[in-house]
Design a protein around this nucleic acid. Structure first.
Length: 298
DNA sequence: GGTAGACCTGGACGC
DNA sequence: GCGTCCAGGTCTACC
């Protein structure tokens, strides 16, 4: 495989920019955005162990992928499969757009091709990152993920200062003290370690949850069985998995709903759920892309 | 089923 | 430079 020779098409409407801006994942290692090329880069560890940098850019009907170095046919197929999943190229939001067309607060979702949420190549990486978003500021999440990647991920051969996200096996081989003292995970360290060990030992087939054909409520229960994953984290992960039946309720959600419908007064989970109940299986997306009136001080 | 308190880190602030 | 307070979800124990 040479440069610029992978072109993937997406189900329209599609906007790479919308996927990149869909949530904060693009600013967490080993993702990065490139202002010069307006593209998304990701340092990816192939199944073979070979670490490459992928540059993903908008193309006419989808995206182009440029990979540093030569890939064989099997590796090209792997990169194609992963990028299709990460960007949700085949995801269909037409039912959501039809519902949203009557709601002024969601008036632009179709025009902006909003709906897809950027995903990591493995659910393991998405779960670890989600755990690292809980009970901390966003700057703390960025810092923890960066340290986790630089300490335990395999280096990019072209630039050994940059690394891929560590595999479950690599994290399973470390210990709680290292995760606490080096990565500063605090009380999250045993959660990440337990998950890594369960996945590495095949005690927990986490990746199968990407495609498992079970009701959302059951999928949520499986996610909640992971230590460190509570209601907010499970709803966030369900969104990543393309299930939008739950709203990820954090302090920001409470604040937004409070100002949108309750005059800034105190609200709880029940009020947030009630506010989006009418959106049914799309309530997570309706919440996510809602055009909030309150901009606040943060 | 609901609730209180502990868990950690880093930033802000006062002294 | 040091101490204190605070923000951020989840877990566990208890009622």
């Amino acid at each position: 495989m040479g440069k610029d020779d992978l072109i993937l098409s997406a189900r329209p409407p599609f906007s790479l920019s919308s996927v990149v801006k869909s949530h904060g994942w693009a600013s967490l290692a080993p993702f990065s955005t490139d202002s010069h090329t307006d593209g998304l880069t990701y340092i990816y560890r192939l199944d073979s162990g070979h670490v490459v940098e992928m540059l993903i850019q908008e193309a006419s009907d989808g995206v182009s992928i440029e990979v540093d170095g030569q890939l064989n046919e099997v590796e090209c197929e792997e990169v194609t499969r992963k990028v299709e999943y990460m960007l949700g190229l085949d995801q269909d939001f037409n039912d959501f757009y039809r519902l949203a067309s009557g709601e002024p607060k969601l008036a632009n979702v179709e025009e902006r091709a909003q709906g897809r949420l950027l995903r990591c190549p493995t659910l393991f990486e998405d779960v670890v990152k989600t755990i690292l978003t809980t009970n901390t500021m966003w700057a703390g999440t960025i810092r923890m993920v960066e340290k986790l990647v630089s300490q335990f991920g395999d280096p990019l051969s072209a630039d050994p200062t940059r690394h891929a996200f560590p595999t479950a096996e690599q994290l399973a081989a470390t210990d709680e003290d290292a995760l606490r003292s080096t990565v500063r995970l605090g009380y999250r360290a045993p959660y990440v370690l337990e998950l890594a060990r369960d996945v590495a030992s095949s005690t927990f087939d986490l990746e199968s949850l990407k495609t498992v054909d079970i009701p959302t409520i059951q999928l949520r229960k499986r996610l909640l069985s992971i230590k460190g994953v509570g209601g907010y984290a499970a709803a966030n992960l369900l969104m990543i998995l393309g299930r939008y039946d739950f709203v990820p309720i954090d302090t920001w959600a409470l604040k937004m709903v409070s100002h949108e419908w309750h005059g800034g007064g105190q609200v709880g989970q029940a009020e947030v759920e009630a506010a989006f109940e009418r959106w049914g299986e799309w309530k997570g997306l309706a919440y996510w892309f809602w055009d909030w009136s309150y901009v606040g001080e943060d």
